[in-house]
Structure formats: structure tokens, C-alpha cells
Simulated scan of single mutants.
Amino acid sequence: MTAGLESRSTLRVRYAETDAMGVVHHATYPVWFEVGRSDLMRDLGLPYAEVEARGYYLMLSGLNVEYRRAARYDDLLTLVTRVASVRSRTLTFRYEVWRGLPEGGDLLATGETRHIATDRSYRPARLPEDVLRALQGAGQG
């Protein structure tokens, strides 16, 4: 991942997130990515609730997850979230899921989500300048 602001979220694997083999189910990772995205937006002073109250949605347009190692019940994880790219109507977030801390932990998965900004009618919309500036600043390092 490129340099820039990162948000770190601590997660503990819950039993309900595992499959019959005791491994975190693959569908859990996108849910965790949402946690990281929400935390990063909050860290930027742009909570999703505020962005939505201003009339904008960041709709998911693409998702990718690369699984490297299994996470298991009760593992303590660190989710690192970064802004990868920002344009007037689109943005991309990148994620790393670590067992333990990135400094010395095991990288379990990486991922990316792509989003398009829309208005309340779900039409593509240019994000407000202050939101763009904050997101662009987060992606620089």
C-alpha cells in the first residue's frame, strides 16, 4: 500500500464469523472492510452519517479480497485501511488484515473497495470540495 493516512481498527474474531472448520468465513472480510472504512472516515472528521446527511452516498461499485492465511475464532486482528485513490465522483480504499499488529504480525488478507458518489436519487454526483480535499490529503504521504 502507498503511504498516507491510515486507520487501524482492532477486531476480535467472533464465533459467529467462523465456519464449521473454525476458520473465518470469506464473506466476513467485506463486513470488516466496512468497519475500517467507517473508522477512517471518522478519523478524517467525515463520519458517514454526516456525509449522508449532506445528501451523498458512497455506493460500492467493486470489491476484491485476496486471502493469504486463515483467521480463526478469538484471533486478535488489526485492520489497516487507507485511501488509495480519489476522483471527483469515485474513490478507492485498500485494506490489510493482520493477526496481531502489522509490525511483526501475520498478513492474513488484503483487499480493495471501489465506490461511486451519488446523490439521494442515486445519480452520480461530484463530492463537495471539503470532502474531496480531506480524502485526497489522506491518500498522500
Rank of each mutant, 00 (worst) to 15 (best):
A3Y: 10
G4T: 09
G4L: 11
E6M: 13
S7C: 12
S7D: 04
S7G: 11
S7I: 01
R8G: 05
S9R: 05
T10W: 00
R14M: 06
Y15G: 03
A16G: 10
E17T: 03
T18S: 07
A20E: 09
M21L: 13
M21Y: 13
G22A: 08
V24G: 07
V24H: 07
H25N: 13
H26S: 03
H26W: 10
A27I: 06
Y29D: 02
W32G: 09
F33D: 06
V35T: 08
S38D: 13
M41L: 15
R42V: 01
R42P: 01
D43F: 09
L44Q: 12
G45S: 10
L46N: 09
P47V: 12
P47G: 11
V51T: 15
V51A: 09
A53K: 11
A53T: 06
A53L: 04
R54Q: 15
Y56F: 15
Y56N: 08
Y57E: 03
L58K: 04
L60R: 11
S61W: 00
L63N: 07
V65S: 10
Y67S: 09
Y67P: 09
R68P: 01
R68N: 02
R69N: 04
R69K: 11
R69T: 00
R69A: 13
D74C: 00
D75V: 08
L76F: 00
L76E: 14
L76D: 11
L77M: 01
V80C: 02
T81D: 08
V83F: 08
V83W: 08
V86R: 06
S88Y: 07
R89A: 12
L91N: 04
R94V: 15
Y95A: 03
Y95K: 05
Y95R: 02
V97M: 10
R99E: 00
R99D: 02
G100C: 09
L101S: 04
P102H: 03
P102K: 02
E103N: 01
E103D: 14
G105K: 10
G105H: 10
D106W: 01
L108T: 00
L108N: 00
A109V: 03
A109F: 04
G111C: 06
T113L: 04
T113R: 01
R114T: 15
A117Q: 08
R120S: 08
R120F: 06
R120M: 12
S121P: 01
R123C: 06
P124N: 14
A125F: 06
P128K: 10
E129Q: 14
L132D: 11
R133I: 07
A134E: 10
A134G: 12
L135I: 12
L135E: 13
Q136W: 08
Q136D: 13
G137N: 14
A138E: 13
G139H: 07
G139I: 05
Q140T: 14
Q140P: 00
